[in-house]
Structure formats: structure tokens, C-alpha cells
Amino acid sequence: MTSTTITVNGRAVTADVEPRLSLADFLREHEGLTGTHTACEHGVCGACTIMLDGRPARSCITLAVAAHGTDVRTVEGWDGDGTMATIRDCFRKAHAVQCGYCTPGMLATAYDIVTRLPGADRDRIRLELSGNLCRCTGYIGIVDAIETAIAEIEGGS
């Protein structure tokens, strides 16, 4: 067992874990934060994407022990964040959520697109979403939602 200390949604957590435990399993099974979903578990599908030190990262191929000292934000940890509130609202209005399995990862990536690439057009949004798979929506609603979120945040509404 190895000790790891990770700030999860603003709260420092220290635990002794097996080195082979992924950050995704740590969040789900040790912290009860089941909003982080695992699907492919080899970094391709994007369902497990969380924010690590403010940047999107794959929690399925990051070891919990290797996340020692980092700041992690999961889908449960966005209370009070106006940008994420806008993105969530746009996802709802654009029907960007169907079964919901990809949604936590989509929201993390959407947050990255909206904050890092405020000039992104639809093609760029699609390119940036290439690392998040959705088997339901056909992506159109998700692209619409992110495009609208960028416009609303840029417009200050």
C-alpha cells in the first residue's frame, strides 16, 4: 500500500491505496464520487475525464498514487462555478444529454474548450471533442451546447 494525498473537490483526502488503483476507481470506490464514469479504461473514450490541476485528464490511466499532490475536480465539484452552470444549462437546452454516460467527461472537455478556446467555431469544437465518445446523441446537441455556451459567456449573459 502507498499513501497518496489528493485534493478532491476542494477537500484534501489522504488514503493508503494499492499502487495499481486508478484515479477513476479511487474517486468512485474510495470517495463515492460515482459521477466519474469508466468505460474503455484505456484512455480512448473520454468518459472518465476529470479536471486535474485545472486541466482535463483521463482518470482511468492516471494512477491514484501518481496523482499525489494534485488538485482534482470531478463533475460533483462545480457548485458555485458560473461558467459550468452556463455549460450545464446549455447542455440541457440543446438536448446534449441522452443516456448520460459520457456527460461527466463531456462537461470537463466542454469546460476546457469554453475557457481555453473562446474563439472556437463548430469545426474546432468537433476537433476538440474527438477524445470524448458519445453513442447516443450524434454529437450535434453537444456541439450546439458548447457553441451556445461560448456565445453566452462571451456575451456576458
Binding site: G43, A57, A108, S130
Partner: peptide, 9 residues
């Protein structure tokens, strides 16, 4: 290279 989430690590 891969996706932004991968490029960050």
C-alpha cells in the same frame, strides 16, 4: 497527439 486530456499528461 491523441486528445487534449492525454496531451496534458
Amino acid at each position: 497527439i491523441a486528445y487534449r486530456a492525454v496531451r496534458n499528461r
